[in-house]
Design a protein around this nucleic acid. Structure first.
Lengths: 333, 333
DNA sequence: CTGAAAGCGCTTACAG
DNA sequence: CTGAAAGCGCTTACAG
């Protein structure tokens, strides 16, 4: 009666073959220890014979947990998140959790769309790098899972934020550059919330330390290598040339170095350059790039730890995790 | 009787509120035209009032199609796939399909694990950049959805491959460099199947054209900027210096240019450099990088077109789509 | 154009 | 340690 011909074998097929109930097979799959070892052996064989692959859609529906986590990032080119996502994907996958990836772009609309999609799949958690508008906040309100904002540390996160203070980064960079003797910084700011926070922090602290007015140039978010050409050209047209360019990413910093060198300027002697993010290339560039290191992998691990705790029914102890940052002085500034 | 208190509203809640059957609400959601407009209006209101978000797990189980597609890539740092994935994620998301992302690393085991996970979620398609071992092939055999290999064009793809001939890329690069008058190439090959194919193609053609022996240096896959330092150092120790370095990626090429310049060599006059992939930076570097352009977005679109056709019940007309490639001559070689 | 009802393939109290 | 059975929240022939 059981024609397992051209369809996927089901739990029933396995159960029948192993002469046990579906409940027992299900238990074996989810918690092998609770079934007698002899029974388990028969089930294992039946699974191998049928080539059974559990239907996680059905499992998720029945158990009310999908074992999926949504990860929302703006673009794939914004490589600053790479370590975070890489770590996330690896650790989750090895725990049997699936990563649903969403590219939010820069619009609020896309973000909300993706959150809706994630909620529709009943994901256990949403991890998002996207700044939150009021609309999004309303959505999150209705999300029964865990919502984690990463790479950010807002005043009052809806549930949990894992990140660092972008403003403090800016402040530290200002102090660092002043202490190194730089006097005429040019700040290149990407047109995004976080980059702006860093710039604000920088400008604030720079003034507080008695520095003069600081010119600012803008680029699209994310700061890319390719922006350097225009930035450098605009810089050259400035009345007074800066002695250091503060960039929104290591790739932009790299671009500025390349432009400067092509123009015959020695870096850092004639023009210093500061990056952000501590990308792989920062340490490999010539000159090596002075930058701010963010432990993206740690952000991922903290987020995952929170998810596990939440899934186990535990309450969150905090609503913010500050992973901090580290200024890395290298050759370029 | 209907306490919609602390649980997610369901189709039943919406149906009750709109005084229709669940079937009608379901139809309205999936194909609005088939319900009377007055009815549709009531349903729309009920949805808004309840804040209903369809459970896609249940929907997928009932309809036997998950509206999910798995995308498998080795690493996130292997930015050569960025355009493909970006396009894929955007186009699929706007069609209501979710992207499940899998990082396969370089081991066969990880890949198989992820394919299993994808099958468990009953994804409609698996799109993979991973080279396939025999194990994987067996798995694919049992996959009822569409399996698409991308960035590759094997002899006999299990179902569909969208890519280009890596060997031909190598051959074309050889012809191009010979025609430009280069005589002593150094080939830097990444330790991966596709990069090797390109190198083989290069070496074959180079010999066929009467070129001499070609030294080869190896790097880990993927070819990165950071590999340049070691490669350049090893190159300098060679008895005869090459006149052109053929790199496995634009980032590696960029690194070699930086190293060369730091050592006081003019590029391309004293050392030419050739990249691969036409990354964004290739056109922005100084000197701009001569490379091979692959239309990653097109690979994504062809794959998606195939998925749509397959989902609509159509048969695939071909088992290979060759998107070709384009050599872009710039300044570096 | 709409409804009643079966079914998708699991999980999980509840009993024993 | 195991089984019978209800239920998760949808979709979709089948009728009308």
């Amino acid at each position: 009666m059981n024609e397992i011909a051209n369809r996927n074998p089901t739990l029933d097929d396995v159960a029948a073959l192993a002469s046990v109930s579906t409940a027992t097979v299900s238990r074996y799959l989810n918690n092998p220890k609770v079934v007698a070892s002899a029974t388990g052996e028969r089930i294992r064989e039946a699974i191998a014979q049928t080539g059974y692959i559990p239907n996680l859609l059905a499992g998720g529906l029945a158990s009310q947990k999908s074992k999926m986590v949504a990860v929302l990032i703006p673009h794939l080119t914004d490589s600053i998140f790479n370590d975070t996502i890489q770590t996330m994907a690896e650790e989750l996958a090895s725990a049997g959790t699936t990563v649903m990836m969403g590219l939010t772009g820069v619009t609020q609309e896309q973000t909300d769309q993706l959150i809706l999609a994630a909620m529709g799949r009943r994901v256990d958690a949403i991890i998002s790098t996207a700044p939150m508008g009021p609309q999004t906040r309303d959505l999150i309100e209705r999300f029964p899972g865990l919502f984690i904002q990463i790479w950010e540390l807002p005043e009052d996160p809806p549930q949990l934020a894992v990140g660092f203070s972008h403003r403090d980064v800016g402040r530290d960079v200002a102090r660092f550059l002043q202490s190194r003797g730089y006097r005429r910084p040019l700040v290149v700011t990407a047109d995004g919330l976080r980059a702006r926070m860093r710039s604000e922090g920088f400008l604030e602290e720079w003034q507080a330390l008695g520095g003069g007015n600081v010119p600012e140039l803008w680029v699209e978010v994310p700061s890319r290598f390719g922006h350097a050409r225009r930035i450098f050209a605009e810089m050259r047209r400035m009345a007074e040339l800066p002695d250091v360019v503060v960039c929104g990413s290591d790739h932009l910093a790299q671009g500025v170095i390349v432009e400067a060198q092509a123009a015959g300027l020695r870096v850092p002697d004639q023009l210093a350059v500061m990056g952000f993010g501590n990308a792989q290339i920062a340490g490999d560039m010539r000159p090596t790039i002075t930058t701010v290191d963010i432990d993206g992998a740690r952000i991922a691990r903290e987020a995952i730890a929170a998810i596990r705790q939440h899934s186990a029914g535990g309450k969150l102890l905090v609503n913010k995790v500050d992973v901090g940052f580290r200024l890395i002085a290298r050759e370029s500034a």
